[in-house]
């Protein structure tokens, strides 16, 4: 936990709350590429998306991977549909934009025979809803800060963002809500990522 606190403090140092008046982020087209570490969607997940709604909404598709050694069996493949909403991105100096808070949701599917869409679909269980949830599909939500660097117009990859996010998923939330003794901090997961666009 000490390391988490240290990471949190460092993240805070990187994202100071020196918010300035907001303008739309210049340059860079709507397409972006993403790489993410952790956050429940893979050891590493890569993907991309297309910015919508005056570049405040970033729907994307990611493909994640958890290697065999970490998965305790065959490697895990995770396909994630994710959308991030960036309500404001004030300027910090000439090239930086700070988004202290982004929010979003995701839906993912873990590939592999160990995971079922519904328990019924396995043909193993005698009754419908033997297990009421899907072990393959997770629904999640996240919040987190983001730092964006906007380069000169001539540069190839003009815009680079680094982000951190705290997320949870439906099953963790059910666990938290069905009793009074788990703390909200116990159901959180940290992810770290970067997005680039030309």
């Amino acid at each position: 936990m000490l390391r988490c606190a240290k990471a949190g403090a460092l993240a805070a140092a990187l994202f100071p709350l020196l918010a300035q008046a907001q303008e739309p982020i210049p340059g860079a087209g709507p397409f972006f590429l993403t790489v993410q570490i952790g956050g429940g969607i893979g050891t590493v997940a890569v993907g991309g998306g297309y910015r919508l709604a005056r570049q405040q909404l970033e729907p994307e598709v990611l493909v994640g991977f958890v290697p065999r050694r970490l998965a305790g069996g065959p490697a895990l493949g995770i396909i994630t549909l994710k959308t991030t909403y960036i309500p404001f991105s004030p300027k910090l100096g000439q090239h930086l934009r700070v988004s202290p808070l982004t929010v979003g949701g995701m839906l993912n599917y873990t590939l592999g025979r160990r995971f079922f869409l519904t328990s019924q679909s396995t043909g193993r269980y005698p009754t419908k809803g033997y297990y009421w949830w899907s072990s393959a599909v997770r629904v999640g939500a996240f919040v987190g800060p983001r730092l964006t660097y906007v380069g000169a117009a001539a540069q190839g990859w003009r815009r680079t963002s680094a982000y951190a996010e705290l997320s949870t998923n439906d099953l963790y939330l059910v666990s938290l809500l069905s009793n009074k003794t788990l703390s909200p901090a116990e159901i959180l997961t940290l992810g770290l990522g970067a997005k680039i666009s030309r």
Partner: peptide, 16 residues
């Protein structure tokens, strides 16, 4: 710090 931080979860199915 993140590498040693147990909050960084690769998947809820991460067995470690």
């Amino acid at each position: 710090s993140l590498a040693g931080c147990e909050w960084v979860e690769f998947s809820p199915n991460d067995h470690r």
